[in-house]
Simulated assay, not measured.
Amino acid sequence: MLKKKDRGTFRAARQSRIFQDVVDQIQEAIMTGEFQTGDMLPSEREMREIFHVSRGTLREALRVLEQKGLIEIRLGVSGGAMVTAAMAETLTESLGLMLRFRKISLDHLHEFREDIEGIVTAKAAERAVAEDVLRLQALVGEAGRHAAGGIGEWKAFLDVDKKFHQALARITGNPIYIFIHTMVHDNIQPYYDTFLPPDDRRLRENFQDLADILDAVEKKDADRAGDLARKHIVRFSAYMRDQHRDLRE
């Protein structure tokens, strides 16, 4: 039985470009959020009826969508075409490999982070609500406890630092910022391990930066928050460049 949403979402495919039209319609429905990750597309019988296409044409279109990582074809009684997050996972893995094998230079990484961290932090300061501020306060409190423990808790501190930056991205409410932050911060550790060795002074500076950013967010001072984030990236980028230069000499 066709649901009202399915009837309204799709239309009969254009006969002049029937195969590609089916692919385009389903892809558009997924990319615009009409079908979310985990949703099942209409059954094969229903889609053939909606698109006015043959079984072979529909199955070929679904195979293309599966290769793109947009759907997963499941077999069995409860099977069908399910919308997946495979595309996002593939992008994350690709960036992760580029970072791990250092196909992205430090300069490229620093330039990108200086820009994006400043923008995201400024927007977070504009959009944060009381619940967001409480979450950031808890993370800064946890970071402070690790900072007080010295370089023995360096990695634990960096883990909280990562959560803090990702929390700022979530506050923006923009899925693109959230996705990009997740990709970068989930895969940047190899750069830290090589170019940012544990150091008491850097640990204290990093913690102070988090505390200052929190203060700006609490006061909804977007300009100051963005400026603090950019300066934070610039300072630690300089440390990593110095370490990189020392390793090459």
Score class of each variant (00 low, 15 high):
Lys103His: 12
Gly144Lys: 13
Glu126Gly: 01
Pro190Tyr: 09
Leu196Ser: 02
Gly33Glu: 09
Ile26Thr: 03
Ala81Gly: 05
Ala211Ser: 13
Ser94Thr: 14
Leu210Lys: 06
Glu72Asn: 11
Gln137Glu: 13
Arg170Gln: 13
Arg145Glu: 14
Asp242Ser: 14
Gly152Leu: 06
Phe10Cys: 03
Asp221Pro: 03
Glu153Leu: 15
Phe207Tyr: 15
Arg202Thr: 06
Asp199His: 08
Leu203Glu: 01
Tyr192Trp: 13
Ile26Val: 14
Arg241Val: 10
Glu66Gly: 06
Lys5Arg: 14
Ala128Gln: 00
Glu131Val: 10
Phe51Arg: 07
Ala148His: 07
Arg7Pro: 01
Arg224Ser: 09
Glu114His: 10
Arg241Cys: 04
Asp200Arg: 14
Val23Tyr: 08
Ala130Cys: 00
Phe164Gly: 00
Gly56Phe: 14
Arg135Tyr: 00
Val53Glu: 08
Asp39Ala: 10
Arg127Trp: 07
Arg100Met: 08
Arg102Ile: 04
Lys123Ile: 15
Met87Tyr: 15
Asp161Cys: 02
Gly76Gln: 04
Gln36Arg: 15
Phe35Arg: 09
Glu44Lys: 14
Arg127Asn: 12
Ile233Cys: 01
Leu41Gly: 05
Arg202Ala: 07
Thr84Gly: 04
Asp21Lys: 05
Arg202His: 13
Trp154Ile: 03
Gly141Met: 06
Arg45Lys: 14
Arg45Val: 11
Glu93Lys: 10
Ala167His: 02
Met1Asp: 13
Ile104Arg: 05
Thr172Ser: 07
Leu247Cys: 02
Ala238Leu: 11
Lys68Asn: 12
Val184Asn: 02
Met240Thr: 04
Ala122Glu: 07
Arg230Ala: 05
Gln15Asp: 13
Arg113Gly: 06
Asp186Glu: 12
Glu49Ala: 14
Ala225Lys: 03
Gly8Thr: 10
Leu65Arg: 06
Gln27Gly: 09
Lys3Asp: 09
Ile178Leu: 07
Ile18Ser: 14
Leu247Tyr: 05
Tyr191Gly: 00
Arg17Lys: 13
Ala130Asn: 12
Leu106Cys: 01
Thr90Met: 14
Lys162Ile: 02
Asp6Lys: 08
Glu205Asn: 15
Ile71Pro: 01
Leu106Phe: 05
Ile176Leu: 15
Glu28His: 12
Arg170Pro: 00
